[in-house]
Simulated assay, not measured.
Amino acid sequence: MNMTYQFLKSYTFKSGVTVKNRVAIPPMTEGMSLENGEVSTDELNYFNIHTGGAGMFITPVANVNALGKGFEGELSVADDKFIPGLAKMAATIKQNGTKAILQIFSAGRMTNSRILRGHQPVSASAVPALRPHAETPRALSEDEIEQTIADFGAATKRAILAGFDGVELHGANTYLLQQFFSPHSNRRNDQWGGSLENRMRFPMRVIEAAQQAIADTATSPFILGYRLSPEEIEEPGIRIEDTLKFVTKLNDMNLDYLHISMGNVWRPSLNNHDDKEPLITKIQRVSPDTPLISVGNVNTPADAEKVMEAGITFVAIGRESIREPHWVQKVEAGTEQSIRYNLSLADLEELGIKTPFFEFLKKMNDAGADQKFDVNDAQTKTVDTDRIDVAFRK
């Protein structure tokens, strides 16, 4: 085993959970759940192929209630009836010591009435997303906000009962948690909107609900993480200064980690082009007590080690983990030369990539994603799967 790489070293979270290495598989939409949100055998096969190497495997996102569904083939944790299937998923992922983390969310306005079977999307305010064919959502009432917070807590409880090792709250990629934080999607003038402090209130309450569920239900240490996108390009929208104040608050919330969602680990500001400092470095300075997971365009062991050398606690490997499910195992065995960096269409069956997932990847290619994923056939296809749900929504 090559233990010279820092990313192969174990880590113990505040919660007391120890992970065997600093590599995480980030949540990547594969669209292979059943229509009602239950786990499918195709998903279990995919997870069985791709798990066992990384310290943490974070699942594709699961909605916490019916109005939270964002796309077809999406996982759900909105009802107790889903627990048996989720238990199979957790058990499948937990091979060779890999920790299974369930990502949970509500899509908010990033859905449509067709996906919601005739219901209007909901959000912080009645402001549509700036994307083609976006529907205008209705603003959640005070009672609905409180119920949604409770739904996140109930989803966390179900994850514990299903045998997961942790939950990641999806506050990134323009979904509901981010919609409350964003001045673009949140135009409220009550306690849930207006000032930066008020716009933080909903995500902070969701974190507290998840923490309470863990305290009430978990009989052993349980991981709680939060994923965020550091900027928006909308006007008004989230700027890095807002995020740094939010992260400062989150640093006091006793979270196990923050997962920074970007298409490139070292990306600088999308809005201030004169500032070349990577956003992850800015966030790192204001989060001294909370580990960070950094993701985006990490392919080789050298790429991953560069993240470690910058003092970032975890590195997430997304696109590369699709084409090389044994990336960590090959590094451990000292056979890095055998790592696969290209994907042939002939490999899809071997890798458990079924039609919904493959069509999703093709759709990302058609959308012109800016981070490239090589699929070698007569014509090369490129997609960005670390930011797959961002691209799909835009």
Rank of each mutant, 00 (worst) to 15 (best):
Q6S: 14
F7T: 05
L8Q: 07
K20D: 03
R22D: 03
M28Y: 12
E30H: 15
M32T: 14
S33Q: 08
L34Q: 13
E35R: 11
V39R: 04
T41L: 12
N45I: 14
F47N: 05
N48M: 10
I49G: 02
G52I: 00
I58N: 01
I58V: 02
T59V: 05
V61E: 10
N63M: 00
N65K: 11
L67S: 08
L67Y: 10
D80N: 13
K81W: 06
G85A: 06
I93N: 00
G97Y: 11
T98C: 08
S106D: 13
G108M: 04
T111A: 10
R117W: 04
H119I: 07
Q120E: 03
A124R: 01
V127Q: 09
R131D: 01
R131Q: 06
P132I: 09
T136W: 02
P137Q: 10
S141F: 01
I145D: 04
I145N: 08
Q147I: 07
D165H: 12
G166H: 08
L169K: 09
L169F: 05
G171H: 06
A172E: 00
Y175T: 10
Q179S: 04
Q179C: 00
Q179N: 05
F180N: 03
N186F: 05
R187K: 08
D190E: 07
G193D: 08
L196T: 04
I207C: 07
A209W: 10
A210C: 13
Q211M: 10
S220G: 09
P221V: 04
G225L: 06
R227S: 09
P230K: 06
I233A: 08
I233S: 14
I238H: 12
I240D: 07
T243C: 11
F246T: 05
L250A: 05
N254W: 08
L255C: 03
Y257I: 06
L258Y: 04
I260M: 12
S269P: 00
N271M: 13
N272K: 04
N272G: 06
D275M: 06
I280S: 00
T281C: 09
R285K: 13
R285S: 04
V286R: 01
S287F: 00
D289T: 12
G296Y: 10
V298Q: 00
T300Q: 02
D303V: 11
A310H: 09
A316S: 07
I317L: 09
S321E: 08
E332S: 01
A333H: 00
T335K: 13
E336D: 07
E336G: 02
L345G: 15
E349L: 02
P356A: 05
L361F: 14
K362R: 15
D366K: 15
Q371C: 14
T385Y: 15
R387H: 05
F392A: 15
